[in-house]
């Protein structure tokens, strides 16, 4: 009886420490659970502060949604590896609280200054293994943050607006997942097949380095402003 009570108490404490009291997950997540989303958001806020030169701050870059999309598309093993990273760094501060005020709490429950201090500690950790893990976590977030269309547009490095070309591939193959009947092109759409010996060279003018950027990126950039 006593053992059962102790076990229940342990489960309760672990649950409080590890899983309870997270805010509800943002709407629209398929893979990430609310604890992971809270962690990602809490790192993004301090890793990419607002007012530092880019239009979208980490807090507003919807990184949980980006990571959710990424994880959903990854093979199981890589998905598990990234989730393990999130788990480790969210709970590391329960065991290694550092000297930041606030004591043993999950990373996402720490104050912003404590989170900054913690990130600095792991980034400069004497063990290269810890640094490497942190770099992996940081990489995942940089991809989402800098990849935000508004940030890329502001930097002038968003993809160019390019009218999709038609090659033999577009004539021969349907879009991924489609049936051949869905191919919209006829032979007359493409007069100079590439690859054939002696084929005429199609001449595209070089892009204007300052020319228009992809409309989806521009739209997303405008929506932010």
């Amino acid at each position: 009886m006593l053992e059962a009570l102790l076990l229940a108490a342990l489960v309760f404490v672990l649950h409080r420490r590890f899983a309870a009291d997270y805010p509800p997950a943002p709407i629209g997540l398929a893979t990430l659970h609310r604890g992971e989303a809270a962690f990602v958001q809490s790192v993004a806020e301090v890793l990419f502060p607002g007012g530092a030169g880019l239009p979208v701050a980490g807090a507003d870059a919807k990184l949980p949604h980006y990571l959710d999309r990424h994880l959903s598309a990854l093979p199981r093993r890589q998905r598990l590896q990234i989730r393990a990273l999130l788990l480790v760094f969210e709970h590391l501060t329960l065991f290694v609280p550092g000297d930041a005020p606030g004591g043993r709490r999950r990373f996402s429950s720490l104050s912003a200054p404590s989170r900054v201090a913690m990130l600095e500690r792991v980034a400069e950790h004497p063990l290269s293994f810890v640094r490497t893990l942190f770099m992996a976590l940081r990489a995942v977030l940089v991809l989402g943050y800098l990849g935000h269309p508004a940030n890329l547009c502001q930097l002038g490095v968003a993809p160019f607006e390019i009218e999709p070309a038609t090659s033999d591939a577009e004539l021969l193959f349907p879009r991924v997942g489609g049936l051949p009947g869905s191919i919209r092109y006829e032979a007359s759409d493409f007069a100079a097949p590439a690859g054939a010996p002696g084929a005429a060279t199609r001449v595209h003018p070089p892009l204007d380095p300052h020319g228009p950027r992809h409309r989806a990126y521009l739209r997303a950039g405008r929506d932010v402003r």
Partner: peptide
Amino acid sequence: PPPILSIRLPGQGAELVARFG
């Protein structure tokens, strides 16, 4: 793609965002 190249840029916080600039 710039986000892929930027994984290796140093720093964090405002310093990192400035580096993206």
